[in-house]
């Protein structure tokens, strides 16, 4: 019955009695999100090497004013705002970056930096997260263009063919679609907002849609990461082919 040292230190960053390495959770987030951020910024400002043959980079599609008639900067800057807003206000990414970048909290039952004013999403800027569904509408619009791009990527000089790029672009838009259709806001709009499925008009149909979206939604985090990586890779691939660093392999 020996007395042992004091209990829990005062709340400060990282104070915890957890025995596991809680920080391993946030490291990949910092690395991947941070890396992607840097890459995307560089690419957005680059303003070139965004298309080759039937391929167009998802960062630049739909291509707006490439000849700089009224928009003097890289066309990607116009496009990327949409996906950026969508992901930045995404319920999943919010969790990821609040934890990894704002340390709010760094991990469960782990101390935060002391003496900070916390207002969560009740005040500017984070109160803006509430517009997420408008970015969702935008994202659906983008998907239409990206599917069109993917479709086009199978036609080389108007003849059907399959290149590695076609597959990369198609896979990417498929993952983006899964990500978009597993969105929490969509889940709400599809039927989650109803209190009584069996009393609403088209209740059964909305119940089925809601259940479908819910099933996808359970894997939202998976789709968030895989589509982030795929979109980055798709752009990277197109860039590499466009600048001639690699040669697109024709499979068919």
């Amino acid at each position: 019955m020996a007395d042992s040292p004091p209990v829990l230190p005062e709340s400060r960053l990282g104070s915890t009695l957890r025995r596991d390495s809680w920080w391993v959770e946030i490291i990949p987030v910092v690395v991947v999100l941070g890396g992607f951020g840097i890459y995307a910024t560089l690419r957005a400002f680059e303003g070139t090497y965004y298309s080759w043959g039937p391929y167009i980079s998802p960062f630049y599609s739909p291509l707006i004013d490439p000849q700089h008639h009224w928009w003097p900067f890289s066309p990607a800057l116009l496009i990327l705002l949409g996906p950026l807003g969508f992901r930045a206000t995404c319920y999943y990414y919010r969790k990821a970056y609040y934890r990894a970048f704002f340390l709010d909290p760094p991990a469960c039952a782990v101390g935060e930096p002391a003496n900070r004013k916390y207002r969560g999403e009740t005040a500017f800027p984070f109160i803006l997260q509430n517009v997420h569904r408008y970015f969702l509408y935008l994202a659906v619009l983008f998907l239409i263009f990206l599917w069109k791009d993917a479709f086009r990527s199978f036609f080389f000089d108007s003849r059907f063919g399959v290149g590695v790029g076609s597959i990369v672009l198609t896979l990417n838009v498929a993952l983006l679609t899964l990500y978009t259709f597993s969105c929490h806001s969509l889940r709400h709009l599809a039927g989650g907002k109803l209190d009584c499925f069996s009393c609403a008009s088209f209740g059964r149909a909305r119940f089925s849609t809601w259940r479908g979206v819910s099933l996808l939604n359970e894997r939202h985090m998976l789709f968030a990461w895989s589509s982030l990586i795929s979109v980055g890779f798709a752009d990277f691939y197109v860039r590499m082919v466009a600048c001639g660093a690699i040669h697109d392999l024709r499979l068919l």
Partner: peptide, 25 residues
């Protein structure tokens, strides 16, 4: 004030998906 960081979901012994199924909706 909830910033959907999901610690509640992680600890719930009843495995209620608090954040996804209650708070976000």
């Amino acid at each position: 004030f909830c910033n959907i960081t999901k610690c509640c979901t992680e600890v719930c012994p009843e495995e209620i998906r608090i954040t996804d199924n209650a708070i976000i909706p």
